[in-house]
Amino acid sequence: MMRMIQLAVACVAVLVATAGQAKAGVITTGFTTNNGLIGAAGNFFDAVIASTSLSVSRMEVNTDTTGLLTVDVYTRPGTSVGFENSAAGWTLQSSNSVTGAGAGSPTSVDVTDFVLPASSTVGFFVWFSSGNISYTTGNVPVSNSDISLNFGSSTTNLFGGADFAPRTWSGTIEYAEASVNAVPEPTSLAVFGIGACVAGLGNARRRRREKQQEATA
């Protein structure tokens, strides 16, 4: 009996550990660039989300700065195009002070988590209030099965309009599924798991007894 309980507890531990795990993903435009701006500057671009909402947990940016810089990430529902010259409708999702890794190397930004709704377009504005931003001239869209990135422009003014276009933001967005449907509460999962495991172990023990009886008959 003790052996059955130990096995049941092990089964539940596995179920609880794996419950609610969301698929993680990443999309990047790369860090080889041919242009940039010195001082306060930023990039506008759009993210088109597929059928699953995504929670952004970390980003990487490209800067030739190796000292401290401040990176602000704004979003708005819908496209960024045509809305570069007004803060109306934009939400500051995260503001981070980071140490630049230098040109061509990813600078990690541990952003405050925010959600990109399923089946939507979300405008992005990545603004360096200090430090130098690196990017690529032209529009080079990238995509995977979860998200597409479309570009975009650059500016030296905080919501002062698009100064240069088209421009491709250089960076990475790390994300996970924003939610997992129909995930049981841990208590319910534990009760279900113990019952299922004990039932399975009981059936296995009964079959062993039947085989032993057949062998001695």
Rank of each mutant, 00 (worst) to 15 (best):
G20Y: 11
L54C: 01
L54P: 05
A24R: 15
A87I: 15
L37G: 08
A13T: 04
V16A: 02
P77I: 09
D46S: 11
T18R: 08
V71K: 09
F31D: 02
L37V: 01
A50N: 14
S53P: 15
F83H: 15
T18P: 01
A50V: 00
E84G: 06
I27P: 12
T75A: 14
N62D: 15
A87H: 06
G78L: 03
D72F: 04
T29F: 09
A88E: 10
T52Y: 07
S57A: 02
N85D: 15
A24K: 06
N62Y: 02
T70S: 14
T70C: 03
T33C: 07
A41Y: 02
L15I: 08
T32S: 13
T65Q: 11
I49V: 15
G30T: 07
K23V: 09
N35P: 00
G39Y: 00
A40V: 01
V73H: 06
T65H: 09
V71I: 14
N34L: 04
A24E: 14
T65I: 05
M59F: 01
V9R: 10
V56G: 07
T63R: 07
A22P: 14
N62T: 08
I27L: 15
A10L: 07
V14Q: 03
V14T: 08
L37M: 12
F45Y: 03
A50G: 08
S55Q: 12
T52L: 04
T79D: 13
S53F: 04
V71Y: 13
V48F: 01
N43V: 10
V12F: 01
G30W: 10
I38V: 13
Y74C: 12
L15Q: 03
G25N: 08
G82M: 11
L68E: 13
I49A: 05
